[in-house]
Design a protein around this nucleic acid. Sequence first.
DNA 1: AAGTGTGAATACGTTCACAGCA
DNA 2: TGCTGTGAACGTATTCACACTT
Lengths: 229, 229
Amino acid sequence: MMRQSQPRDRGIPEATVARLPLYLRALNGMAERGVATVSSEDLATAAGVNSAKLRKDLSHLGSYGTRGVGYDVEYLVYQISRELGLTQDWAVAIVGVGNLGRALANYGGFVSRGFRVAALLDADPEIVGDDIAGLNVEHIDELEAVIKRRGVSIVVLATPAAAAQELCDRVIAAGVTSILNFAPVVLSVPDTVDVRKVDLSIELQILAFHEQRKTDRMSGGPLMAVDSQ
Amino acid sequence: MMRQSQPRDRGIPEATVARLPLYLRALNGMAERGVATVSSEDLATAAGVNSAKLRKDLSHLGSYGTRGVGYDVEYLVYQISRELGLTQDWAVAIVGVGNLGRALANYGGFVSRGFRVAALLDADPEIVGDDIAGLNVEHIDELEAVIKRRGVSIVVLATPAAAAQELCDRVIAAGVTSILNFAPVVLSVPDTVDVRKVDLSIELQILAFHEQRKTDRMSGGPLMAVDSQ
DNA sequence: AAGTGTGAATACGTTCACAGCA
DNA sequence: TGCTGTGAACGTATTCACACTT
């Protein structure tokens, strides 16, 4: 029983990977509240997706549910954590300790299971030496040494746009292959390196687009005289 | 000449909308550097996409290029800005002035063309009254009044998870239909409201997933009987 | 009876490749 | 000749609906 479920199909779709953390969070909440078992319907609701999508997503990891019953919360937490690589812990370095870097260093969810802020680095001598969230800010000259010495495998770039590409090149040269970029630039990297981008002004612009449509619809009506062509 | 090009097909794909800000940023850089004309190939490179995608994306806005030549930089900046609704300016309120809210208030790109931080609100009496980025932090009791008085149409939620849903409900009741959510919760909203989510720990988890795959491939091979649970 | 797991159908997004225009 | 704009081909993601299991 309990199917010694295999390593599993190495091809989990990106869209699925991007939702696993959502499921995990919902499941952790349930585990804390003592829920033992959950149906795809309820878990989907908690995660803000529909149940067909949730079942299809989980089916990519393996067959971890029980027909007629649902999923065991603890077990699913473990399986998703393992799939995401959260059973080991990752040393993260934050490069750039301005307002944003500071906020990130203090951000609770950051230090959550699986991740550990191992270094804060900045170029500004005013900032170097400060203690933030229990860590000493080190000089950017130490970048390569710190990455190697502390086994940093994920770097968060929270620098000004102008500095980002150069620092990106340096962390890659030091062996890092996963970067979370907050600087508003397109980083160019070899395709062995994963970059994820968080861009505040882009998110706002997307909202503005939809907001504009909504207000257009209110007032103007269906838009006058559609094109030539 | 110069095709009096019209309002255009009301259905721009979401994926395209999400990339327009990228193109806009690349174009603004070029405009500043005095570039008058750009080919799809060059603009695509600057924005980090391929040229077929870029041309298809722009074709949804209209026929703004010139065959054999390329796109007029200024003109395209204007067209994309208009499409995104950046020719008007949007009053943004930041709710929650902890580390992250403070970082957002100070974030330069935020106050860029099209957006204006119109209010900072918090519940903590220690913080209310502080001046941050030239703005006075107001008490959360003022939320509804401030939204109405200042015509706030986009709200940035940077509160703890526990407070987010209630504040979300309040801003929606006050008439806001666009929310940028930094709190790690799934907000439930009527479907007339747009929510975009920025979630730091989700981004890290996605990186960890890929990082794990890379290191697996290096060392162990196809997975040796992982731990006990 | 209840609810998972999954083929099949559909919708959406990307890339190709080239006709057509400057 | 050079480069845009776009149908057609392909690939990926979502949804449907139901067979199958407990």
